[in-house]
């Protein structure tokens, strides 16, 4: 049924009719002009990659999942003392409030860190973390740094709460680092 606007519509304003040549140019010419950029880049090859078989390399200062560090001893059987003293400064700095530290006291029999105290519990809730890196900046002992790993998705939220053991473990470096000048 043809549309009858009725008496409410007084006049419909349309652009002036185009000529045939103008219409043809509009269809092909303009489109080709737009494709120029695309076609000029075709020779460069595709930029998309086959994730997860291939991974985008990250920059050295990329802020991925955190690592907690130990003092290095060079001896794999004798891991060094933890650098973290459980001072909670990272927790104070964290804008997402996703770090939880419960400190305890080192004893001569049970020495975990170099200071008087150590972190008995150290947890980061990575589902809340915004990867701002403030924790790294706040730490007076360079005990926590942001690594390069960005592959952290999981099936349950609770698995995203990383414990001290998980953060201390050597992370699987799954992410290639961008080479200098790359």
């Amino acid at each position: 049924m043809p549309y009858d606007p009725g008496k409410d519509v007084i006049e419909v304003v349309r652009h002036p009719p185009r000529s045939a040549a103008a219409s043809t140019y509009r269809i092909f010419g303009e489109t080709l002009r737009g494709m120029k950029t695309t076609l000029a880049r075709v020779v460069e090859g595709p930029l998309t990659i086959q994730y997860p078989e291939e991974k985008t390399p990250v920059y050295p200062r990329f802020r991925g999942r955190h690592k907690l560090h130990r003092f290095e001893t060079g001896d794999p059987d004798n891991p060094g003392l933890e650098k973290c003293v459980g001072c909670s400064l990272c927790a104070a700095a964290c804008p997402a409030d996703c770090i939880r530290v419960v400190a305890a006291e080192n004893t001569p029999e049970h020495r975990v860190s170099a200071g008087e105290r150590y972190a008995a519990v150290y947890e980061i809730n990575l589902s809340r973390c915004i990867f701002c890196g403030y924790c790294e900046v706040a730490c007076p002992f360079d005990a926590i740094t942001m690594g390069h790993d960005y592959e952290m998705s999981d099936y349950t939220r609770s698995d995203l709460i990383f414990t001290k053991e998980m953060l201390l473990a050597e992370p699987l470096e799954r992410t290639p680092l961008r080479a200098a000048g790359e």
Binding site: G86, C87, S88, A91, A92, V101, V102, A103, A104, E105, E116, R117
Partner: peptide, 9 residues
Amino acid sequence: YRFRARPWD
């Protein structure tokens, strides 16, 4: 109270 908490905790 030794090392139990920080004021922000």
